[in-house]
Amino acid sequence: MNLLKLLGWEVERMTKPYLILITLLVVTQFTWLGVFLWSETNMYEEIRRTGTPDYVLTFGNYIGGVPFILSIGVAVAAMLLYSFWIWYRDFQGRGTFMMRLLLMPQQRMLVFGAKLATMMLMVLGLLSVQWIALKLQYIAFTGWFDSQMIPVSGTFEQAIRFDGALSVMYPASFVNFLIHQVLIVLVILYIFAFVLMERSLWQRTLWAPILAMLILGTLILVPVLTFYFLENRLFMDELMLLILLGLIGWMTAAIWIARRYLTKKLSV
């Protein structure tokens, strides 16, 4: 129950900046759509006057546009930064609010859980808004070019699948999508572990951030190196198993470190 209440507080604190981010994302994309439709139509008309255009437009051209990619980049950067800020904001001043959180007579990991849940809600929220925006953009795209009698090729699914970022964000199988979310969680866990470690060590050593990065860096690097070493000795299914174990290992390690530093080492 406390987790839900904590989640409520965290979500309330991020609502304003989050809404700004989403509006920014949607506005940039739809403006770029407008610009794209307008410029492509003009160009097509011009070529059509002097001959037959030798190219066919696809939805991929739109989502390949720089503004589109930039808007996604900004959203990703915002999420990464907020994963740090969601903790560091509580350490503002002389660790004011963090002190209140740590004094709560309950499991400290509830605070950790609430922040993680908030981050995932934000990420999934962005992915949801983006998917709906994409579908709307596709409708506008095809509708407009049909009305302009300009041929268009390729399906919506194809455009998504061939786009670098979108194929990762929206893989062809929903199970893969869930697995990608697990990877996102993992990234957030490591950011959280870093922050908690840094906040616990900063009073003991000036090298806190570097030390934290070193420890977490090795924790991330070692499995990656073993993977590359084994990669050409194992079969695909064995590799998958190795990756699964690696992920589980990473997750438990991150949670274990976070828990240890949050409950025993954190110093406000």
Partner: peptide, 28 residues
């Protein structure tokens, strides 16, 4: 419990958005 409205709203957006995505990705 005013705060819970924000959470519920965001949850709804997620369910709608990812719901459509899941349906779109349904295997043939």
């Amino acid at each position: 419990m005013k705060r819970m409205w924000n959470v519920a709203a965001l949850g709804a957006v997620v369910i709608i958005g990812l719901g459509t995505f899941a349906v779109d990705m349904r295997d043939t």
